[in-house]
Simulated assay, not measured.
Amino acid sequence: MVLPRVIATDLDGTLLGRSGEVSERNRRALNDAVDAGIRVVIVTARPPRNTTAIAELFECAAVVCGNGAHAQVPGRDPLVRAIDRDTSATLVDKLRGALPGVGFAVETGVDFYHDADYTLEPWMPRDWVTGVLEDTDALLAAANPVTKLLARSTSMPVHLMLDAATESVGPLAEVTYSGSSGLVEVSATGVNKGSTLALLCEEWGVSREEVVAFGDMPNDRSSLTWAGAGYAMRSGHPDLLDPELGLLVAPPNHEDGVGRVVERLLQG
């Protein structure tokens, strides 16, 4: 077995355990991969503010946040792939018509804003909120750039939200989700984990066949299917475990699935 040149891993539900921690086994395996000359890349829906501490546990060649909209490579300015202002306004109008009781929020890569109709997640610290705006016009005026547009409904299951949102916005944006709550995540057209990972690998001269990727949710599909070896976590979303998708399967996240696969790759 030939060693991969890049290992890309999602965080929540993938590298992180049930309590949101990186286990010692996972940390050691990724550090061993770095020592073997492999680039390790984090690819997450999270914003940079709650990814940095995890990225410091091992040497990262890049940290890709916001489902591919914000990528940080050490020693360089961030790569930002944002939705432009006019398109953001159009997306808000279309999503409001498709999703009942919807509220909106924006990640800029640095700050987080939401409008008065957005129900804030219970786990999110209130001091992470840069501003609460009365309506979405004010929201889009204040939040720049729009690296990720968030739409939350308190009355619609997330899989139905995804279908309705995807149909309503068409080719204007990428729509996905990374959790079970009523929240869909919207990025610029062509911006997802897989496309940003591909850009980085092209810059590094790494082919897709030399990439191993790990993930557990629909927002990971683009990176898992682009990589030469995409591992869906056995504990993850059932859609990724569909044999027709052709993905490999890693042990559950709470059983150090990433670390166990990386150990086998290094031993091989």
Score class of each variant (00 low, 15 high):
Leu199Phe: 05
Pro243Arg: 06
Glu209Val: 06
Glu209Lys: 06
Asp220His: 10
Leu197Arg: 00
Trp226Ser: 00
Gly194His: 03
Lys193Trp: 05
Ser195Glu: 06
Leu245Arg: 14
Cys201His: 01
Met217Phe: 13
Glu209His: 14
Ser195Asp: 04
Ser223Val: 13
Trp204Gln: 05
Ala227Tyr: 06
Val206Gln: 06
Met217Asp: 07
Glu209Cys: 06
Met233Thr: 03
Glu209Phe: 10
Met233Glu: 12
Thr196Pro: 05
Trp226Lys: 04
Ser207Lys: 09
Thr225Gln: 14
Ser207Pro: 02
Asp220Glu: 10
Gly194Asp: 05
Leu245Trp: 11
Met233Leu: 15
Asp242Ile: 11
Thr225Glu: 15
Ala232Gln: 08
Asp242Gln: 11
Arg234Tyr: 10
Pro243Ala: 10
Leu197Cys: 09
Ser195Ala: 12
Arg221His: 13
Arg208Val: 06
Phe214Glu: 00
Glu209Leu: 07
Pro243Ile: 04
Asn219Trp: 01
Val206Trp: 04
His237Val: 05
Ala213Leu: 09
Lys193Ile: 09
Ala213His: 05
Glu209Ala: 15
Leu200His: 00
Leu245Ile: 13
Asp242Glu: 14
Trp204Phe: 13
Asp242Ala: 13
Leu197Pro: 00
Ala229Trp: 10
Pro238Leu: 10
Glu210Val: 00
Leu245Thr: 13
Thr196Phe: 04
Asp242Ser: 12
Ala232Ser: 13
Glu209Pro: 08
Val206Phe: 04
Gly194Val: 04
Val206Ser: 07
Tyr231Ser: 07
Ser195Asn: 13
Gly230Trp: 07
Leu200Thr: 02
Gly228Phe: 06
Asn219Met: 06
Asp239Thr: 12
Met233Pro: 01
Ser195Pro: 02
Glu203Tyr: 03
Asn219Glu: 12
Glu202Ser: 13
Pro238Cys: 12
Met217Thr: 09
Trp226Met: 12
Tyr231Asp: 05
Val212Trp: 01
Asp216Tyr: 02
Val206Arg: 01
Ala229Val: 12
Glu209Gln: 13
Ser222Gln: 08
Ser195Gly: 08
Trp226Cys: 02
Ala232Phe: 04
Cys201Pro: 00
Asn219His: 10
Arg234Phe: 08
Met233Lys: 00
Leu197Asp: 01
Leu197Ser: 04
His237Trp: 10
Asp242Gly: 07
Glu244His: 13
Glu202Lys: 11
Glu210Met: 05
Thr196Arg: 02
Arg208Asn: 12
Ala229His: 13
Glu203Lys: 09
Trp226Asn: 03
Pro243Glu: 12
